[in-house]
Amino acid sequence: MATRIVVLGAGYAGVVAAKSIAKQPGTRVTLVNASDLFVERVRMHQVAVGQPVRQRPIAELLTGSPVEFVVDRVVALDTERREVVLAEGAPLVYDTLVYALGSRAAHDAVPGAAEHAYPLAVAEDADRLRARLTAGGSVTVVGGGLTGIEAAAELAETQPELKVRLVTGGAFGAALSERGRLHLRRVFARLGVEVQDHARVAEVRADGVLLADGVLLPADTVVWTTGFRVPEIAREAGIACDDHGRMLVDATLRSVSHPDVYAIGDAAAARRQDGQELRMACATGLPAAAHVAQSISDRLAGRTPRPLRFRYVNQCVSLGRRDGLIQFVRDDDSAVERVLTGRVAAWYKEFVVRGALSAQRHPGLVKLTPRGRKEA
C-alpha cells in the first residue's frame, strides 16, 4: 500500500516539496491549499502599485506530477488519528504530514494597526492596498526590513505623486554593510522617500501613526510590513512549537515531538548546523523543501537522513524596477562590504524571483550537493 503523504500549504516551499516527494515510488501525495492560485509573495509590492503580475493556477504548476490537489482550508490536525480536518471536505488521513502553512502579517502588534493599517503579506493584502492607493495623498510604511524597503521604493517610483515615508524602530538598513546603507539612502533621497529611523510606533490611527515619544506622523495610508505570525494549528494540535508558534524541528526538519510530521517554510523553526535559526524567506523555504523530500525518501527506504546543511549567499532587494541592491553575506547571513547596485542589481533580483517560480515547475532546479547542502 502506498504511503499517504499530505502537504499543507502551496507556497514556494509546499509546491516544491509535494512534487519532489511524489517522484518517490510507493507514495501518494496530496497537496492542500486554501486558494487555487499560486501567490508570488515576493511580488506583493508590485501588485499593490498596480503592476501586472500574472496569477498562476496551482494546478498548472502541478501539470505532469501525480500530486492530488485539494482546494480547502485547514482548520485543525488530529495527530492521534493522523487526520487533517478541513473546512468543507472530509478529513484527510496521512501517514506522513508536511506542514508548510506559511505566515501572515502581525498587524495587530500595536493598537489600531488591525483597524487602520494595510499589511502586505498575501494577495488579498496587496489588492486592498492597491484599491486604497487610488485616493492618493501620503503613505507611511512601517517596518525597515526588506519588505518595507521594497514597498516604499516601489510606491515612490511608480506613483511619484504620493508622499512616501518609511518608519523603522532601528537604524535604516541596519543589516546591510556601509556601502549597502549608503546606496539605500541615495536611492531613497532620489525617490523622495522620507526616512524616520529609531522611531517606535505606539499606535496606528485613522490619520497616521503615533510614535512612542508622542509625535503624530500624519498619513492618509499606513502600510504595515513589520512582523509576521504563523497559524496556531500546529500548537493547538499539541505539536511542539516555539514562542511564536513555529514548529520545532530537528536537523532533518522532522517535528521533535511527532515523528510523522515535518515542517518547512515560515511555519518551521529550522536551524543551521551551528544552531542559528533560519529567517523567514523564499531563500530558505526552497532548500528546506528539497531537503524534507530527501529526508522522507531516505526514511521510507530505510536510510538515515542527513542533517540540513545551509549557508546564506546574499540578500536581494528591489528598489523599484530600475534599481536594486544585492548585499553579499557570510555563511551566517552577516553582511560583507561587497554589494551590487543599480540596474544590474535590479536584473539580478528579477532573475532570482523568476528562478523561484521556475522551481515550482521544475523542483530539480533546487539541488543537493554531495555534502547535503542545498543550492538553488
Rank of each mutant, 00 (worst) to 15 (best):
T140Y: 00
L31H: 05
G148L: 02
V15S: 03
A109W: 05
R81W: 01
W347D: 13
G355Y: 10
G170K: 01
A251S: 15
D125N: 14
G372R: 08
L286R: 05
P363S: 13
D207M: 07
A18S: 11
A48V: 01
V98A: 00
L184G: 09
D127Q: 12
V167L: 12
A263C: 09
T140N: 04
E194R: 12
A135P: 00
C282H: 03
S177N: 12
E40Y: 07
A113H: 08
P259R: 14
E80Y: 13
G89I: 10
V39G: 00
G342S: 09
G275N: 11
A126Y: 02
L166H: 07
S138M: 09
V15C: 08
A87C: 02
V339H: 03
E337S: 15
R179V: 00
P305N: 09
G208V: 09
L182F: 02
V6E: 00
Q196V: 15
R4I: 02
R299N: 05
V7S: 01
R165H: 09
A2R: 13
L101P: 04
A117R: 04
T284H: 10
D72F: 09
L92I: 06
I149M: 05
A290S: 13
V139R: 06
R130Q: 14
D213V: 07
L166A: 03
R354D: 14
G320Q: 01
A59F: 09
D266H: 06
H116W: 15
E375L: 15
R43P: 00
Y262L: 09
Y312F: 13
D78S: 12
D266T: 02
R311V: 11
H45F: 05
L308G: 06
F188N: 00
H362F: 14
R82D: 01
A376W: 15
G275S: 11
V344Y: 10
Y118W: 12
T341A: 01
F38Q: 00
H258P: 00
A268I: 04
T225M: 02
V74E: 05
G227F: 01
L319V: 06
